[in-house]
Structure formats: C-alpha cells, structure tokens
Computed example of a mutant assay.
Amino acid sequence: MGNKSTDPLLLGQRVVAILETGQRDATYKLATLMALIEHCIENLPEQATDTLRVPIPELAHRVLAIYWRQVRPFEGHELAQRRTGRKARIIDATKELRDAARTGDTALSLEVAMMRTPKAYQQAIDKIVIALAKQPLPRLQKLPGSATSDPFLYDDSFLGENVSRRTLRQHGDAIVLNPGVAHGLARLAGLLRPTLEIMWVEDVRQMNKFLDAEVPDVAGHLFGRERTALTVVRDPFKEAFGPHCFYCGTHLPADNPIDHVLPWSLVGIDGLANLVLACARCNGDKRHALPSVDIVNRVLTRDREALEEIAADLQWPTQHERVTAAARGIYRGQPEGVPTWAGYKQTERLDISFPPWWIMTGYSPR
C-alpha cells in the first residue's frame, strides 16, 4: 500500500497499539490524540504526503474544550481522570477557568467563558501547553517500559518533563506531523474517535469506583451525548427558518430532534452552523452517517445573519468557519465513491470532481 508513513491503516494500528499497551495513568493521551485528529480534519494539507504544523496552544484549546464539560459533577460526584496521587494539571486549569468565568455547573460554552475572562482563559491555555509538552505529547509515541519513543507521528525529542517555555519558543510552540500523518489521522477519524471514547469510558470507570454497571450513561456526560441542552435552539430555529425538517421539509411537532449535520461521532461541533431542525424519521435514519455534499452546501449557505442573531440571544457560538473547515477536511479526506446520506432511505456516492466552494483549495469564506 505504499510508504508506511502514508499508510492510514498502518498508522491507525500503531496508534491503537500504543494506547492499548500497558495501563494509562490518565485520560490525557486520549484527549491529546482526539484533539490532534480534530486539528488534522480542520487543517487538512493539500497533498496526502504533506507535513502539518500543529501549534501547541491550538492543541491546548481543543483539549480544554474536551474537558470543559467533563469536569462538571456527574451524579453528584467529581470524576477523577488520573490515578490517585498524581497531579491533574489539565483538569485543574479547566476548573480554574470555569471558576473565573463563574459558570457553576451550567452548560455555558467555552466560547462565552473566553469572552468573559480572556486573561483567565490565556492563563489556562499557558498551563495546558506546558502540561501537554511535559507528558502526553512525549508519551503518546512511547511503549510502556521503553526508554525511547518511536516518533512515527512527530518529532518529540525537545519535549518531556524538563521542557521549558524557552525550548518551546525555539521550536515555534508547535509540533510538526510527519509526512502523511495528517491525512491518515483525518481519514481514520470515523474509526479512531469511537475507539478513543470507548477507552476513555473504561479508564474513567476504573478510576472512579462508584461507577459500577448500574450507573447510567457516563459516556453521555463525558462526550456530550446528553442532547437535552440542544433543545434551547429549537424555537429560535423554527422562528428563523420555519418549523420544517431541514432534510425532507415535513412540518415538525413541538418536540422534534436537533441534528448535527457533520456527525457528532466524527467531529464534536455543537456550533449553530452545524445544527438543524430534523424530523424523527430523518434523524433516526441519518444517525452517524456522512451527509451528501449537497446537504452540507445547503447548511453552509443558510442565512448567517439569522444565525448570528440567535447566537447573540442564546450566548451560543455559530462556529461557521470551524464547520466549513471541518467539512472541507472530511470530504477531501474521503475516497471517491463512498456512500453518503442524501435523505431518508437515500444514498449518493461521493463525487467532488467539481468541488463546491468550501472544498476549493485556499478558499476561506468571510
């Protein structure tokens, strides 16, 4: 299948082997890899064999966003995400920002917290950057018991417990993914992300003894599958776009579902630009399927002014640019001809021989 560095299957096997070998002391490696995959999707290089520079502060933001909801109490308990007796630097930085933004246990978005307390947000990012550079980034490529790492993802020789801010600056505050890694991780996202979530839930259950088999959906708490929070967008969407299913146009009842157009199982984007009103029939049929290019075109060309007004009223980000970047990365990383969901009981083979505006090279909508 060609050079091993650009073989997505081999890359995925090596990633999973690193994660499955030995006991994980924390969920930080899983979070770092999940953040790396998201970054690759949204910043996919033009060529499959290209390298990709990943700023560690951007990675830190994605890791912070993952833990943002997770640090809230679950069933009255605070979930441990490290083995006892170890420092929880990333978790602590996340909690400190929530305290500074006075979020309490609410579902207030990270974006709103950033606007409320920009200084506290930057302090949290600085702490997480150092935490990533000291532990998960150098350990992500190291088999337990091995004295050295196997840098198949990126050069980590400058990282480790003794890393300084000066050293990070000398390396541009970034890691550089090896040739082919960004495309490989983006293409494997649909397989790797669910695998990481399963591992994460298993680790959290082991680290929190009260989470026995009778405890309800901890995965929902960790990864946002408790979708009740999305219901607040239902009425504003109906007022702005009409009480109709985005996919089939049928008139909607009062309690219709809210759907993620780019599936939550692939990219966890809750921004308004990725949400639509759906009927129960379409929502159930689509599930985690990749939507057709035409559906993505329609969602990205909705009235942005209306979305921004809803965002201001609800204090809920639109994330239009992020959804656009994610869509571009997802579809450019797919092989031609894969089936996509085109409506209830309908599929279309992917064809981007005449790419829409959001796939076009170098185009960034404003």
Score class of each variant (00 low, 15 high):
residue 218 V to Q: 01
residue 78 E to K: 15
residue 358 W to H: 09
residue 210 F to C: 02
residue 11 L to A: 07
residue 41 I to R: 05
residue 270 D to T: 14
residue 81 Q to C: 09
residue 148 T to V: 09
residue 144 P to S: 09
residue 311 A to L: 09
residue 40 C to W: 03
residue 195 T to P: 00
residue 338 V to L: 06
residue 142 K to N: 05
residue 105 D to Q: 07
residue 273 A to M: 07
residue 59 L to I: 09
residue 53 R to Q: 06
residue 91 I to F: 03
residue 52 L to K: 09
residue 193 R to S: 00
residue 53 R to Y: 04
residue 248 C to Q: 03
residue 173 D to P: 10
residue 158 F to K: 12
residue 191 L to V: 13
residue 219 A to Y: 02
residue 272 L to S: 15
residue 233 V to S: 01
residue 176 V to I: 13
residue 313 D to V: 14
residue 309 E to G: 08
residue 62 R to T: 11
residue 152 F to M: 04
residue 339 P to L: 15
residue 5 S to Q: 10
residue 164 S to Q: 08
residue 147 A to F: 00
residue 237 F to D: 08
residue 220 G to Q: 07
residue 94 T to H: 02
residue 366 R to F: 01
residue 39 H to F: 10
residue 227 R to E: 00
residue 100 A to R: 02
residue 297 N to K: 05
residue 19 L to M: 03
residue 358 W to P: 15
residue 65 A to R: 15
residue 32 T to S: 12
residue 15 V to P: 14
residue 260 H to P: 00
residue 65 A to L: 05
residue 66 I to Y: 00
residue 262 L to V: 08
residue 159 L to D: 07
residue 90 I to H: 02
residue 242 G to Q: 06
residue 57 P to L: 03
residue 108 L to N: 15
residue 177 L to G: 02
residue 67 Y to M: 12
residue 243 P to R: 12
residue 287 R to M: 05
residue 208 N to L: 05
residue 92 D to C: 14
residue 345 K to D: 15
residue 281 R to I: 08
residue 161 E to A: 14
residue 214 E to Q: 13
residue 44 L to E: 04
residue 101 A to I: 05
residue 16 V to D: 12
residue 191 L to N: 13
residue 75 E to Q: 14
residue 22 G to V: 04
residue 362 G to Q: 07
